[in-house]
Design a protein around this nucleic acid. Sequence first.
DNA 1: AACTGTGAAATCCTTCACAGCT
DNA 2: AGCTGTGAAGGATTTCACAGTT
Lengths: 258, 258
Amino acid sequence: MATGRNHRPATRSRGIPEATVARLPLYLRALTALSERSVPTVSSEELATAAGVNSAKLRKDFSYLGSYGTRGVGYDVEYLVYQISRELGLTQDWPVVIVGIGNLGAALANYGGFASRGFRVAALIDADPAMTGRQVAGMGVSHVDDLEQIIQANGVSIGVITTPGGAAQQVCDRLVAAGITSILNFAPTVLSVPEGVDVRKVDLSIELQILAFHEQRKAADELAAGRNGTPRVPAAVERRAGRAEDGPEGDIPAVMPA
Amino acid sequence: MATGRNHRPATRSRGIPEATVARLPLYLRALTALSERSVPTVSSEELATAAGVNSAKLRKDFSYLGSYGTRGVGYDVEYLVYQISRELGLTQDWPVVIVGIGNLGAALANYGGFASRGFRVAALIDADPAMTGRQVAGMGVSHVDDLEQIIQANGVSIGVITTPGGAAQQVCDRLVAAGITSILNFAPTVLSVPEGVDVRKVDLSIELQILAFHEQRKAADELAAGRNGTPRVPAAVERRAGRAEDGPEGDIPAVMPA
DNA sequence: AACTGTGAAATCCTTCACAGCT
DNA sequence: AGCTGTGAAGGATTTCACAGTT
């Protein structure tokens, strides 16, 4: 898939690494904050700190976009805001639909930062007739029967799925059939989509489980270290350590699904 | 950092790769579904499909946990559920607090999948006195003044921040001072925390921006390909292509370093 | 003097492909 | 015969460190 070899010096190289793309929004946010404070230029070091990364990484990232900095000086804030916005496709507006107007769907509909960057909620869609027509975030909820028509009429290419897990694949299939090519999935389901459709997944429960893993490891390390190391670990670990033990190995448990 | 060389067959190697940890919850979810259907064993191929990864990756991931499969047969579903649960620390229960009971905080509080896997909402906390005492998801909202006391009393070590961006760092500092060592941050803010505290970030706006990047690239590729390629790209790209143009190269945009 | 842009090295992650067990 | 477990190869990402520019 990589474009063989890129002769052109920079300025328009195809194929920005995915890891870099995922950080561009962070840089953009930090830059926007600087812009609002009318800061004219910023060094890679300062910007990196604001974005929560290290400066070598930031410079490498920017090098994929082109040479937008000035040696000895830094980056022009407004200019960079524009370049990154353009690279991310935020100079155009992106209508999105939210399917599944439960607690989460409604919360997202109300979420302000949504509209801020070129994203516009074109419609809220739900399968429940009792929901249809109700006002959420100042907007009428449409019935899922009209899904295809809404997408076509508004030229929507991004869909957000906030249905229960059981409905997600079905909704996904309809979205894709209707022309959607990017999906943000909040349902706890692995969606299968045809080639050419992007799916990103946001899953609260997965994030918590990852945190739990590290949390547990901290407690275990603390125990193993015989509590004689640096006393930098906060109180919770200490309190928790007792419960963390579970029989380190051995007997097969009474595992319970439900 | 790698433990030199691991003699022990497996069973307890330190240092599971982060990428693997991030996938364990996916495997666990797929396994739980199999378990509910009383499927006794599963091959790496089947499980990988259900989890949305490829089988080599899955086998490699499991190899970090130990040798839990049977050659020629596959994995015992119940046994694997237990092993992964244990590895993730889900055999104990994790009280969490949610700070910031706006739309999103309330939605999370109501979210069912929360409680399912050992996570228990110990308290909902908000700074707004008007919110205090109100019932959300069958639970009283506490005032942020009591944050420290609540955390100590319940042995909470995981905090979820759903405040507006402006309040997030402040809340984070208090959580950390009170003993929290893992934070799930929904606020659009880069949190700074002392060493030993884990932060994971969930950001709707960032996810959408990443999708927009790819969406834009699809449209651009479509144009560049002179629309003679395979006609597999859905209608939205076509519709969108006109707007996606922005001056492909060449002229420097209106926005310029002052 | 300050700071960017980038090859090269180091590290991390994925995929291949097959030996080894059941 | 079927499937796991894993070295080794291949990619991708991060970090280093410094040449080059203002």
